[in-house]
């Protein structure tokens, strides 16, 4: 327990700055993409490590696996509608009802398993980071999101837009090596329809699923004492 704590701080305080420095010193024209990839991976590691080091009840473990399976299976069920996927909604619901750690892991692992099935790529670490962050944020805001449906839907729409914005930054860094604003805006505009579909699908899925799924999760928590 103590050891993982130390390692966690070591990663955040030593490895991340070291990656930034190394990137700036060694990789002249590719430094931004190197640094951002390293930071994306390294910021997922403490979550994985504290999960590994801690004693988690087997029930929570299996519930996490089921929620990950739901978000990936949703991609199959809605395969006929491109970009219209319940992944973000399920991650948000998991974050709200099962806490920040499970929320983050559900997002990150959903991205990873989607990668296993639909193909891993350079975008996978960033997807893991983005969805993990969405799960974490929804856990932090759970008090508001549980009660207020308008806040929940707004959060869903915003997370769709933020997800798209973040991955556009990655593409820009990838093409140019540095942040080129005009390229970023062009990418953002061309991706606008997809972003809109993300946002709308998040709102629809959250509107339909949040309450019934939440009730079922609460019921399981009470029934089996989680």
């Amino acid at each position: 327990m103590k050891k993982t704590q130390i390692l966690k701080y070591l990663i955040l305080l030593v490895c991340v700055p070291a990656a930034v420095l190394l990137g700036a010193l060694v990789f002249d024209d590719r430094k931004y993409i190197f640094v951002s990839a390293c930071v994306a991976v390294l910021s997922c590691v403490p979550f994985f490590m504290s999960f590994e080091g801690k004693k988690t009840s087997t029930k929570r473990l299996v519930l996490l696996a089921v929620m990950v399976a739901f978000s990936v299976a949703g991609r199959y069920i809605f395969a006929f509608l491109p970009h219209f996927k319940p992944v973000t909604a399920i991650v948000v619901i998991t974050g709200i009802y099962l806490g920040s750690e499970i929320g983050f892991l559900c997002g990150a692992l959903s991205a990873l398993i989607s990668g296993f099935i639909f193909g891993l790529g350079p975008w996978t670490p960033f997807q893991m980071f983005a969805w993990g962050l969405i799960g974490l944020l929804s856990a932090l805001l759970s008090a508001i999101l549980k009660k207020n449906k308008i806040a929940l839907c707004t959060f869903g729409a915003l997370s769709g837009v933020l997800y798209s914005l973040l991955l556009d930054v990655v593409s820009t860094l990838w093409y140019d090596g540095a942040f080129n604003l005009s390229r970023y805006l062009a990418l953002f505009v061309t991706a606008l329809p997809v972003t809109a579909v993300y946002a709308v699908s998040n709102v629809i899925f959250l509107f339909l699923l949040a309450k019934p799924m939440g009730e079922k999760l609460e019921r399981i928590k009470i029934k089996y004492g989680l």
């Binding site: 999960f51 996490l64 089921v66 399976a69 990936v72 299976a73 892991l105 692992l109 398993i113």
Partner: peptide
Amino acid sequence: VSPKLAVVLSMALRFIPLLK
């Protein structure tokens, strides 16, 4: 590297066809 994560991942991979 992480036996616990591997368990979660392999269970999730098994649940996907089960859910379908």
